[in-house]
Design a protein around this nucleic acid. Structure first.
Length: 309
DNA sequence: AGCGGTCAAGTTGAT
DNA sequence: ATCAACTTGACCGCT
């Protein structure tokens, strides 16, 4: 139904978020591989990267316009929005790319668009970013990636860079001490956006809340991960404690297990959200809920329709 | 045009 | 010891 926009007054106060990609909408983000790129001449490498970055910046603006039209209030930005940005060999500075000022201008337009239409954007660096590692090189590379994402976050006004606690290395307590120390040492533009999320195999909300309290970093509560890796906290209690860590609009994650909770792999995500998986105690809260479902925008739309009834 | 192997990175737990 | 899973599947190179 073209032009059909959900009415604000029918909608839940929850701001629902779309993660990174589209299922049906022809909005794409491109990337490349280091091996392929490095076989080219340096000049060609730069021009390919410039084309990819420009394409992705334009796609982001298109994605945000789509979200606004659909009443989707939040969009998670792919870590590879600037492909291979911090790769040890293929990495580059944006200002080394032809047309760099156009690229940055489009990202800044994205930021202005978000301000104008009350859209939120976030980043979620992937599993290779681990701040609790005992290996300083791993921590240093992770921080470099966060610095890159914080730079883009500054252009687009993203207020969240969300990471997991990382590994335990057989000693959670010590690992979390390292995590606190590293968080405190982060550059301001990273630390002011950093959030911690409970994962489904190592760190629970109960593990991370003390870190949040010690550092002022908010907790992104993922209820699906919490159900896969419980810690004695009820969903209601974890919700309350996570909300209390936020000095801005809270951000939570929601997904449904592939094939239901009785299936073999409850950890993997289903195409859509089973409304029963959304905690009752979330209803009416003023916060962002990012929908992690493989059907992407279709899943967000279906959940919003269901809750508007 | 379609398809399969591969992709920069870390850690865990199943096999 | 090896390897999928995590996640966001997408890209490259070959047929």
């Amino acid at each position: 139904m073209p032009g059909c926009v959900l009415q604000t007054d029918m909608m839940s106060p929850i701001r629902f978020g779309l993660c990174c990609l589209f299922k049906n909408e022809p909005i794409t983000f491109r990337r490349t591989t280091a091996g392929f790129l490095l076989k080219k001449q340096p000049r060609e490498q730069k021009s390919m990267l410039a084309a990819l970055c420009l394409h992705n910046a334009r796609s982001l603006l298109t994605a945000l316009a789509y979200c606004r039209d659909q009443g989707i209030g939040d969009f998670r930005i792919n870590s590879q929005i600037l492909p291979l940005k911090t790769h040890p060999e293929a990495g580059y500075a944006v200002k080394d790319l032809a047309g760099w000022s156009d690229i940055i201008d489009i990202f800044k337009s994205c930021g202005a668009f978000c301000r104008r239409h009350d859209l939120r954007t976030t980043f979620h660096p992937d599993q290779f970013i681990v701040l609790s590692s005992p290996d300083p090189d791993i921590v240093q590379r992770s921080v470099a990636e966060l610095v890159y994402q914080a730079e883009v976050a500054g252009w687009v006004h993203a207020d969240v860079i969300n990471v997991h606690g990382g590994g335990a290395y057989g000693d959670k307590k010590t690992a979390l001490k390292r995590l606190v120390r590293v968080i405190r040492s982060l550059p301001q533009k990273v630390r002011s956006r950093l959030t911690l999320e409970n994962d489904d195999r190592v760190y629970t909300p109960a593990d991370l809340l003390p870190v949040c309290h010690a550092t002022g970093v908010p907790l992104v509560y993922d209820v699906h991960h919490h159900r896969c890796l419980p810690d004695g906290l009820s969903v209601e209690r974890a919700t309350q404690q996570a909300l209390a860590t936020w000095n801005r609009e809270p951000l939570f994650h929601l997904s449904s297990p592939l094939g239901g909770w009785s299936a073999g792999t409850p950890r993997s995500h289903d195409d859509f959200i089973d409304p029963a998986d959304m905690p009752e105690c979330w209803r009416g809260l003023q916060m962002t809920v990012e929908v992690e479902a493989k059907a992407k925008e279709l899943a967000v739309q279906e959940l919003m329709r269901h809750l508007a009834k």
